[in-house]
Design a protein around this nucleic acid. Structure first.
Lengths: 136, 136
DNA sequence: TTAGGTGCAAAACCTTTGCCATCCC
DNA sequence: GGGATGGCAAAGGTTTTGCACCTAA
């Protein structure tokens, strides 16, 4: 689960450049599929596989970031009361934190942006206790 | 995208109770599939569909919460510099915020938990400007 | 020349759905 | 009885992968 730095010579290709250009120009944050559709306007013969691979590569190189969470599975929580989480980047487990929720953040963002803010989700990342041993 | 409250008489069934029990006892936050495997120890004939439906129902009723993000598609961001996001619950778009990142949170959590905290992801939720009109 | 990349299609995954039998209220 | 559910299997949608053919370095 840890993003190990791959030792590999990356080649500069028009496909990956097109992907990066699309992401750079987009103000919202395109999904892989939206990126594919956009790139296709420049490179009609590009395939979905290439876009997915390209995004993955760009992310490994730190050029692009995947939002929210890696992987596609949802996780469920029986605790409904608002609280924050910690996700271990190695084992993937998610733990509850009893850190107090900072309510005033919502109002601050609302005032600055004009969005109606109902709540926020805060997730800390790193290594849990068990995985800290195993990691070195 | 907004969770409308469904008007429906919910029945109390052993399947849904088993699902809830599993979620209640788990300290990490099981995925739907992990929940299924766990429930199956009690109810070997339960189906995946029932677990998925059960989780959905429990979530609608506010008994259970789905973590992190609704939907399964990943979104990509060409801005690597740490920053927060706002996600509109109606149109699903994700916007960057220029709210300053609160660095000290990481250290605070690390001290309290013993986890090694590398960073955090903060996402505000609500309605964007456009969707506030449309919503009433 | 050659390791890394691309296209294409199939496979793998996760989640939702349709259908019909079943179970409660 | 009749609406709410469950089991099963098929369908849907997203992402990954195997493989033969390219191509940048």
């Amino acid at each position: 689960m840890l993003g190990l730095t791959t030792i590999m010579n990356r080649r500069r290709t028009k496909q990956r450049e097109a992907i990066l250009a699309v992401l750079g120009n987009a103000s919202d944050h395109p999904t892989a599929d939206q990126t594919y559709e956009e790139v296709r306007k420049q490179l009609p013969r590009i395939s979905k596989g290439t876009v997915y691979r390209g995004l993955r590569v760009l992310e490994e190189d730190g050029v692009v970031k995947e939002l929210s969470l890696p992987g596609t599975v949802s996780r469920f929580d029986a605790t409904v009361r608002p609280h924050y989480h910690f996700r271990c980047d190695r084992c993937g487990r998610v733990f509850d934190l009893d850190q107090p929720v900072i309510e005033e953040l919502d109002a601050r963002v609302a005032k600055r942006t004009g969005y109606k803010v109902t709540h926020h989700e805060l997730e800390f990342r790193g290594l849990c206790r068990e995985c800290q041993w195993r990691s070195l």
